[in-house]
Nucleic acid binder design. Sequence first.
DNA 1: CGCCCATAGATTGTCGACAATTTACGCCTA
DNA 2: TAGGCGTAAATTGTCGACAATCTATGGGCG
Lengths: 227, 227
Amino acid sequence: MHQVHPALRQPVTAADRVLQEIQRAIVEGDIAAGSKISEPELARRFDLSRAPLREALARLERCHLIERIPNAGARVVKLSVAGLLALYQLRENLEGLACKLAAEQMSDTEIAEVRQLLDQHLSSQRVREGESYYQEAGDLDFHYRIILGSKNSYLINILCDELYYLVRMYRVQLGMNGPRVSRAFDEHKAIINAIANRDGELADLLMRRHIAASRRNIELKLQQMGS
Amino acid sequence: MHQVHPALRQPVTAADRVLQEIQRAIVEGDIAAGSKISEPELARRFDLSRAPLREALARLERCHLIERIPNAGARVVKLSVAGLLALYQLRENLEGLACKLAAEQMSDTEIAEVRQLLDQHLSSQRVREGESYYQEAGDLDFHYRIILGSKNSYLINILCDELYYLVRMYRVQLGMNGPRVSRAFDEHKAIINAIANRDGELADLLMRRHIAASRRNIELKLQQMGS
DNA sequence: CGCCCATAGATTGTCGACAATTTACGCCTA
DNA sequence: TAGGCGTAAATTGTCGACAATCTATGGGCG
């Protein structure tokens, strides 16, 4: 039996469970962005001691959802245009690389499975027109598959474990909707086609554009909010 | 007063201190690659309780120096050709990006400081011909400056906090020496020149080649050892 | 003889309390 | 009234002990 990647490992310890709960709470804005994290309060709220809670906080810091200062506590990260640009700058590059590697590394069956996934999304999208949650989940699922397809464990770790929660936080709290939703499907299709043709260079380019378009969408929302 | 980057923050807590000690021990092979980490043993050895030690272990996992399995403990990472390739594949891309950004973001004074640093290295190299430790430290210093020059905090975090200890581990344990040492200086010079000319594309290319050359050097060593 | 299972030992995960540090408040002073 | 200082409260960091889980050894069974 081969070891599954930590990113999709199910929680076994109390720290794992509380981590997932707090992650969800922060990503969905249930715990407000910029607010202070109180260890005693969270410990009471989730009914466990501070030891596993602190373990969870360490991992939250790892995925950039909180910022800790020694002896002074932790704060939930604040969303900003500058932060979004820095994050997506990196994402464009890394997921572009993931595409290039996936074009070399993914097996034909893996590629077929991703195509099947896209067809599945397309049909469910026709039914639930404009339903942004499914789009969100479907988009993530697509990106995950490509990233895993790169077969580079360090790259997988950075994207799936360390950056994606923050990406989701921007997307959930600032919303992705409008005409982007339907276009994203076409872009996904073009990307997997390039990978199927083993054209890593093109897949890289298309993924960068895909992510840049997504960034502009959120950037606009952020600026609208700011004004 | 603005906040310094965590990468060069000095230790304030016991967990910070023991982290640095264990990091050094693993990187330099003082704690053997592939060996099991025993929490009680390390706690005795560094004369502290398991709480700060576990905090340190969490961060060691973050920079890929150990691998943990829930309820089963931690092992020091094993060096391998496959791991080296995956790591350097990522490094080429990320430091290439850092160069591109540095060409846009670094101030003229920052660039001048890096040039001064290189001159300094060159003169000290002439005196200590072939001294690999200084080369090692100097090379790291150069790369750090470029990375910090990118001004992208996520990129800085990944390279300086999460990947560089492992890079150093490969370099220290498998050694960088021979003709590479003197060539690296010239390559550094060419890279900072490209950045000074605000030619991000060239700086990117040169850095990728620089890192690829370094990889081949270590790869050779690893294969010699394996046979 | 090899494989499986049970038990004993050791290790990791979790808990509650104490120590060290930071933050908040009130007081004094200029 | 604004600012600085000292104390008190709260928070974080650390400790030692207990509970849950895994590993290893030995015995039984096919």
